[in-house]
Design a binder for these strands. Structure first.
Lengths: 222, 222
DNA sequence: GGATTTTTCTGACATGGCGTTAGTACGCCT
DNA sequence: AGGCGTACTAACGCCATGTCAGAAAAATCC
């Protein structure tokens, strides 16, 4: 789903196959370098020459492994993707205790955001300048809209979540998460993890489980 | 605060003064064209040549009025800014009825977003590729964080809003608004206004005024 | 109503990043 | 040693950018 090598529609030519591996080595060297680069400098300063200079390879080598910088970003995103989806499961699968499942999922999300904030920001920054990457990024975000929305509907059926149109609310909450994570953890000096977590946690819970909120948030009603 | 002309630190040379005005005319012709362009095509397709071709002027003329495309975007943003700040006042100033003030403000916000969605998306898209514009955009968003946070603190003092650290929550809610508006109204086929409004409205109110939520949202407690 | 100054505009250039192509270097096999 | 595939690179053409010196058009003067 990303670049040359892995099974891949849409790229003009697939180069380098997985099994033998001097290639795999240089490829991941490039990925590493890119990763390191983006931890300290914004995507706009990343140029192919710029990137490969921190490598022992020539600029043209880059094009043997990636179609362009956006292709590189897509690959980087895919590396993070797993962690996020993983973390989300706590809430999505725990039918028993919605509130604490959500707690857990959001905590996991914030953790991943904290670790890979620079990648997330870089991808979000890179997306608007490339149609394909923009589509990938939006699809990525959109996939959460779907599952969150489904879970909300489920909790509404159970009566633990107020009635409302789930999809737009899911979208809003997800955009919030994305925006907050990138804002908080996208630059060199990262925000306080607990502070961020408790802010988004409060918003999710107030919105989805307001009946619990009294106890859970610890505040009297009327 | 934007480009050549208006009082303006940081631009290398200020050209064209306001009062006499053949210049002002071409300048706004360019702005108009840019505006029109961005209503149907993304920022990444906007090039100086591209833009000026839809004008009766040459490419170089562009540089008489703007430093670069990002400068143009900054000017475009400033034109929208007013409307948004304006709309926010309803809630910020209405001490009497927080909930309905917030209703009003969010409705105004969604209206502005609906009208100028393409500009907002274009600016957000353009920001990451230019340090200066990125700073402007973040400052713009950040300014709302400040005022919203202040208002929250005030309502907490009054006891109508639960106790929590206001700033991170304000930030999260604002990022949500920005993300939602751009997502919903940034492309050619815009989302349903009422749907968007009621989603973000619900989230804001559940979070800030949960004690009202029961009545206002119309759902039984426990 | 022609000359002069000021305003507005433009063609032509240099720069820099991009992506491709033709070709080189190296290891391995037999 | 010759041939083959893998891994790499130097050099090229392209396109958008921003600048600059000077042309054209408008305004002003006499």
């Amino acid at each position: 789903m990303s670049e040359k090598s892995e099974a891949d529609a849409n790229s003009k030519r697939v180069v380098r196959q997985l099994p033998p591996s001097k290639a795999a080595l240089t490829r991941s060297a490039i990925l590493d370098t890119g990763n390191r680069f983006l931890e300290t400098r914004p995507f706009r300063e990343l140029t192919v020459a710029n990137l490969m200079a921190e490598t022992e390879h020539s600029r043209s080598t880059f094009y043997l492994y990636f179609n362009d910088l956006h292709g590189l970003m897509e690959t980087l995103l895919n590396e993070v993707k797993g962690g996020i989806v993983e973390g989300a499961r706590a809430w999505l699968l725990n039918e028993a205790d919605a509130v604490s499942g959500l707690h857990e999922s959001l905590r996991a999300l914030v953790d991943v955001g904290y670790q890979h904030g620079s990648i997330l920001k870089a991808v979000a920054d890179a997306a608007p300048s490339d149609e394909r990457l923009e589509h990938v990024w939006e699809t990525f975000l959109g996939s959460f809209d779907q599952v969150v929305s489904a879970r909300i509907a489920q909790d509404q059926a159970k009566g633990i979540t107020p009635e409302f149109d789930p999809l737009p609310v899911a979208r809003a909450l997800n955009r919030m998460d994305a925006g907050v994570l990138i804002n908080a953890f996208g630059s060199v000096q990262k925000a306080n993890k607990e502070e961020v977590l408790s802010a988004i946690m409060r918003i999710w819970i107030s919105t989805l489980y307001p009946f619990d909120a009294a106890g859970s948030i610890g505040h009297r009603f009327k």
